[in-house]
Design a protein around this nucleic acid. Structure first.
Length: 674
DNA sequence: GCCCTAGTAAACATCG
DNA sequence: TCGATGTTTACTAGGG
């Protein structure tokens, strides 16, 4: 059920999710086919075969016994198969410390250990070792069983011979051969089942691993028949009609027993796919429908005990059935054990699949070096034809000198939704008014660094203001200057969102460039380039920290410097600008060399002005425009403002540059605060 | 409700 | 003339 709904959701996901799509398909295919066919089919087949047994002639008797043996063996194999793959098995420490508690007691105790608990108790290597032990034990039991069967068969043959009905050796050989064939068939069934399990995700073993036990059987069993089963060999033990001597198993399998202490009822482990192979899909689907008043093992009017399916009219009847048919015995214990393994395996598989998903996403979204065609945007950009030209060239021209946020590599995996990104800012939404950078004071650079790949691939509107983005774009360049077109390119390169609606956001970019004094247009050799006047930018709007007196008050009172929010601290850490205050830094070249990457927007709102100063710099000529770096000392920007001194931005007031009233007009520190 | 900031749209000017 | 670029204004909306 969950798988189906999940896959359905995935299928409905936007285009471009090929990986996911195939994933869903896989899930569908496996969940349907596996449980339905192999599992239930096998179980029923066995049952009917046994029921139809009549009796009598030695040959028939032999056949019957073979059938019975097969049935039991199949069950055993299927159960084993369910548990085969679980790296961690139920054996707990008991394997090491000879536990005296009978398996059945240990297993059926209400305090039974859950797989999770076992996983917690045992380390993976331990679990693996235990699993191997268990598998070896299982195999040994199986071999014993076959041996006994063969002995039984041999005894019968002797009996028949003594009865004066000698059977031609050939006939006997044929029977043995038939038996062997059946065993092989059984093994094939097991193999098939295992494959189904693998498809379902129940088994995560590598092909060779998974087939290990299967391959072992064909080798071992014939050996049993040929070797140990040789006529005349005395029966070692009394032959048990039931074939599987779980008592013996229990004795040796104390290692399987969960610690006497512990826990959750079986129901706790019930999982859809985790149902042993003998379960039907119907049961799987019903496993979720437990109601408070019902029993977890009772659903749809039938017993949900693995392999049972007994119809029970009501809960009371079911309880009776449960107590009688599934009492504390070795068989139930074994089944319980298998179920535990199944659950455990499912959990492991889930973890693996999750990890795989993460890896897939990481792979799909994180390849910085790979030339990414812009046809890839998650959402096609209508009317961006001319635009794509730009972006392609942009990609090609991606300046290596440009410092990429180091975090993309270090960042965990591209998050589906970056922190601070409200649903409203997801693409398609209307105008996003407030950007998180403003709201949460998160440095745009760190935010971008962390979610770089996300924004790059997801058609999600970045939670930054245009001004912040423009600034970031400019600051990311070695020389801290960009032409308008380069800014466009940066936008499209960095954000999938800006690969569409170009007219709108480009207009907004131009609007912001013109509107904000912090952006300085400089006539360059190659034309007009835009630079950032950090000081202006800082002054621009200190809404949170400085703009709002109350807010400032709160910050001051509520936060010590040491208690600044993480983002701000990160920003501080990032901004290792020694320079800042030094007017000498104004040289773009030196600045860039010194600040390869850190520029950072220390979060627009938060960034205090390092500057001292007074008036905003007039527009500077290319060489001089300074992206002054701000020293983010702390929120107390007012303090900085108080500092008298030449504006960092205008180290060279004399520098050429069109005197912009825009820049000059404001400037008094006091202004900003208001 | 006011004010500030931001986003969007549009008109207009300039320039190559 | 056209498109890119740049400036400006108006409006709307979110949030303090």
């Amino acid at each position: 059920m969950m798988v189906e709904s999940a896959s359905e959701t995935i299928r409905s996901a936007p285009s471009g999710q090929n990986g996911v799509g195939s994933l869903s398909g896989q899930a569908d295919g496996s969940s349907g086919g596996a449980t339905g066919t192999t599992a239930s089919g096998t179980g029923r087949e066995v049952t009917t075969g046994a029921d139809s047994n009549g009796e009598m002639s030695p040959a028939e008797l032999l056949h019957f016994q073979q059938q019975q043996a097969l049935q039991v063996a199949r069950q055993f194999l299927l159960q084993q198969a369910s548990g085969l793959s679980s790296p961690g098995n139920n054996d707990s420490k008991q394997s090491a410390s000879a536990v005296q508690v009978p398996v059945s007691v240990a297993m059926m105790s209400p305090q039974m250990l859950t797989p999770q608990q076992m996983q917690q108790i045992l380390s993976p290597p331990q679990l693996q070792a235990l699993l191997q032990q268990q598998q070896a034990l299982m195999l040994q039991q199986l071999q014993e069983y076959y041996k006994k069967q063969q002995e039984q068969l041999h005894l019968q043959l002797l009996t028949q011979q003594q009865a004066g009905k000698p059977q031609p050796k050939e006939a006997l050989g044929n029977k043995q051969l038939a038996f062997q064939q059946q065993l092989l068939q059984m093994q094939q069934l097991q193999q098939q089942h295992l494959l189904n399990l693998q498809r379902q995700g129940l088994v995560s073993l590598q092909p060779n691993q998974a087939s290990g036990p299967l391959q072992t059987l064909p080798q071992d069993l014939p050996q049993l028949w040929k070797g140990e089963g040789a006529p005349g060999q005395p029966a070692e033990d009394s032959v048990k009609q039931e074939g599987l001597d779980l008592t013996g198993t229990a004795a040796t399998a104390t290692s399987f027993a969960a610690p006497p202490k512990v826990s959750p009822p079986l129901s706790h482990h019930t999982l859809p796919n985790g149902q042993p192979t003998v379960l039907t899909s119907r049961r799987d689907s019903s496993s979720h429908e437990e109601t408070p008043g019902s029993h977890p093992l009772y659903g749809h009017g039938e017993c949900k005990w693995p392999g049972c399916e007994t119809l029970c009219e009501d809960l009371g009847q079911f309880i009776k059935h449960l107590n009688t048919e599934h009492a504390l015995d070795d068989r139930s214990t074994a089944q319980c054990r298998v179920q535990m393994q199944v659950v455990q395996q499912l959990e492991i598989q889930l973890a693996k699949e999750s990890e795989r998903l993460q890896a897939m996403m990481a792979h799909l979204h994180m390849r910085p070096s790979e030339p990414k065609p812009f046809s890839q945007p998650l959402n096609p950009v209508p009317g961006s034809s001319s635009f794509s030209k730009v972006t392609v060239s942009a990609a090609d021209s991606f300046p290596d000198g440009l410092v990429h946020p180091p975090t993309s590599a270090a960042a965990p995996v591209t998050p589906l939704r970056p922190p601070g990104l409200g649903s409203a800012s997801l693409h398609g939404g209307g105008p996003a008014r407030r950007r998180s950078s403003d709201k949460f004071c998160s440095p745009i650079s760190s935010e971008l660094a962390q979610n770089h790949e996300f924004y790059k691939n997801a058609d999600v509107r970045p939670p930054f203001t245009y001004a912040s983005l423009i600034r970031q774009a400019i600051l990311e360049t070695p020389d801290r200057q960009l032409t308008l077109n380069e800014i466009y390119n940066w936008f499209t390169r960095m954000f999938a969102y800006f690969r569409r609606n170009t007219a709108t956001w480009k207009n907004a970019v131009r609007h912001n460039l013109s509107l904000h004094k912090c952006f300085v247009r400089v006539e360059n050799v190659k034309g007009a380039v835009w630079t950032v006047d950090e000081r202006e930018y800082q002054k621009r709007r200190p809404p949170k920290m400085t703009g709002s007196p109350t807010l400032v008050k709160n910050m001051i009172s509520g936060l010590s410097y040491g208690a600044l929010n993480a983002s701000y601290q990160a920003a501080l850490a990032e901004s290792s600008f020694p320079l800042l205050n030094s007017p000498g830094m104004l040289n773009p070249g030196s600045a860039s060399s010194l600040l390869p990457l850190s520029h950072d927007d220390v979060g627009a709102p938060v960034e205090p002005l390092p500057s001292n100063g007074s008036s905003s710099p007039p527009r500077l000529s290319p060489p001089q425009y300074s992206h002054q770096v701000q020293v983010k000392e702390e929120p107390a920007e007012a303090e900085e403002d108080r500092q008298p001194g030449p504006p960092l931005g205008a180290p060279n007031p004399s520098a050429s540059g069109p005197p912009e009233d825009r820049d000059l007009e404001e400037e008094l520190p006091g202004e900003e605060l208001s």
